[in-house]
Design a protein around this nucleic acid. Structure first.
Lengths: 212, 212
DNA sequence: TGTACATCAGTGAACGCGCGTTCACTGATGTAC
DNA sequence: TGTACATCAGTGAACGCGCGTTCACTGATGTAC
């Protein structure tokens, strides 16, 4: 027990037979793995080893590997939402005005891309591993999609966008930003130079904002 | 030999010891697998079995599994280009006019999305398995990216788009269309209804075209 | 035109790996009396 | 307050699978003389 504690467990120093909060520890370990190596690397044996526990212990907390990965993916989504909220909070412009509303949308889009570029492992995990179409009971404040809709609604209430252009706008906005993010991180544009990349991002964000 | 011919080989009826064109047959088999089950399913043993050949025979034609998958992915890219060209060829509007140039771009974007929706396996293979940033010596006529650039150039020459807006336009256009395609096929939007999907596509294509 | 021989393109068997998952188990915990 | 016992949350060993890849091989082909 003591040897295992010293050599393998990175989370608790004194590990009793009962872990205490293994479920959370496994998700945390999965998050670390996903961050560094992407979703495919989130493998039961790796994650349990990182938590200092035998492989099958995971089955006390998750039905199977997929359920664990799903939980990790949910957290990745939250991380994305958190970055967006952080960047929005840094925004000095006033919220009620049309200009402020457009500005907020731009900032959110850029934050989304920033997340994909700086936390590629989490980004891939979030979008590659969520059981699609299921609700993952993210609170609205931690759901990127909810944030986007909120910003678009703000656009309407501040009279920056005519109501009749509101329907479907979330798709167009999301698609552009998601598209450039995936092309840059796992698509044919990975090898772009810093400068080309910036150009691509500017142009993409600019075009969709203008086009809404 | 005869039994193998009858039960396993789907491509040649009389199969000699020397296959004849195994490289091509393997790519073809890989294409069939990718189409039905996606890139991860393109596995040496499956593909060689489909070609009626022992697993290690592949190594006479490809260095490893990745090289085979890369070849298959290249073909998938060509399939995408072919669909775009087909849809463009069906376009009745005259090519030189500004309106025609915009129209062509719209058609190409829609064809791209159509490909992703109807040939999801190939779409994923094309973008998930190409060795990124390498040139795959696709001829321009079979390279979706080249087609896109051509259409954007046409936009400029027909005076539909000011020259100064040309740089980076390929990124913005590509990103939108690629984004909605991935969100709809492997992302959180897979469960959209037919109607919502159409709305999402229309809005996305419309916004980016307008925003360029 | 026939034969020797190098070369090419397959075969069959096996290796080692990492994976998810299952089994029977045991140590720790909490609760009823 | 102390003890019996159910329940919970771990362990250790093993299973079976599919995978890429390697080895020594052999049948077919083409070419020089």
């Amino acid at each position: 027990v003591y040897i295992r504690t010293i050599t393998e467990d990175v989370y608790n120093v004194n590990m009793p037979y009962h872990h205490g909060n293994l479920r959370e520890a496994l998700i945390e370990a999965g998050l670390a793995t996903a961050r560094a190596e992407g979703p495919e690397a989130v493998v039961l044996r790796v994650v349990t080893r990182a938590a200092g526990v035998s492989p099958n212990a995971a089955y006390r907390h998750f039905a199977d590997r997929d359920e664990l990965l799903g939980a990790v993916a949910g957290r990745c989504m939250e991380k994305l939402a958190e970055l967006i909220e952080t960047r929005l909070a840094e925004d000095p412009s006033e919220p009620g005005s049309p200009k402020g509303a457009w500005n907020a949308l731009t900032i959110a889009g850029r934050a989304y891309i920033e997340f994909a570029l700086t936390e590629t492992g989490w980004f891939k995990t979030a979008f590659g591993s969520l059981v699609l179409g299921e609700d993952h009971d993210l609170p609205d404040s931690k759901d990127p999609y909810a944030i986007l809709n909120r910003l678009l609604d703000d656009l309407v209430t501040s009279r920056a966008l005519p109501v009749e252009r509101r329907p479907g706008a979330e798709y167009a906005a999301w698609a552009s930003v998601h598209g450039i993010a995936t092309l840059l991180t796992e698509g044919p544009l990975v090898r772009l130079t810093e400068e080309e990349r910036r150009c691509a991002i500017d142009r993409t964000v600019g075009a969709v904002i203008f086009g809404l």
